[in-house]
C-alpha cells in the first residue's frame, strides 16, 4: 500500500497528498501523523489537498479526525489547497468539516499557524489570538 509522506519543516509537519485517498491510505495517514506529532513535538500540521480531485465523506471525516487528534496532541491542523469544484461538491454533499481550519495554499496556511506562534511567544498562554477565533 502506498503511504503519504510526512515532512517536518521547523515547528510544522507538512503532508502533501499526491495519491488517491483510498480508505486504507487515509486511515494509515491518520495513524502516522499522530505518531509523528508526538515524536517531533511540533505544534502545527498542514495538509495540502490541492492534488485531490475528489473528497468524499470518508476522506472528509478522516481529515476531521486528524484535526481532532492533533488538537488533543497540542498541534493545530490547517487543511490547504482545496479545489473549488471539491468545495462546491462538499457543500452540496452537506459536509462542512466543522473544526477544521483551512487556507488557500501552503504559504497562507503557514502564516495562519505562525500567527498563533507569536501569541505563545508573548506568554499569553491559554489564550487564543482573536484573529484566529474569527475564522472558526
Amino acid at each position: 500500500m502506498e503511504r503519504v509522506p510526512v515532512l517536518k519543516i521547523g515547528d510544522i509537519l507538512l503532508v502533501s497528498i499526491q495519491i488517491d485517498m483510498e480508505d486504507q491510505v487515509a486511515l494509515q495517514l491518520q495513524e502516522d501523523l499522530a505518531e509523528r506529532i508526538v515524536a517531533t513535538g511540533v505544534h502545527g500540521v498542514i495538509i495540502d489537498i490541492s492534488a485531490l480531485d475528489i473528497v468524499d465523506s470518508f476522506v472528509g471525516r478522516t481529515l476531521a479526525a486528524i484535526a481532532s487528534v492533533s488538537r488533543v496532541l497540542d498541534a493545530e491542523t490547517v487543511v490547504v489547497g482545496m479545489r473549488p469544484a471539491v468545495a462546491i461538491t462538499l457543500v452540496e454533499l452537506g459536509l462542512s468539516l466543522p473544526g477544521i481550519r483551512t487556507a488557500l495554499n501552503v504559504e497562507l496556511g503557514i502564516a495562519m499557524l505562525g500567527s498563533r506562534e507569536t501569541v505563545d511567544v508573548l506568554g499569553d498562554e491559554g489564550e487564543t489570538d482573536p484573529a484566529v477565533l474569527t475564522r472558526e
Binding site: 490547504v80 482545496m82 473549488p84 462546491i88 457543500v91 452540496e92 462542512s96 496556511g109 475564522r135
Partner: peptide, 13 residues
C-alpha cells in the same frame, strides 16, 4: 450562501 460556505472550506472569507 453555498458559495460563501464553499469559500470558507477553501480557507477564504
Amino acid at each position: 450562501l453555498k458559495t460563501v460556505v464553499a469559500a470558507r472550506l477553501m480557507g477564504a472569507d
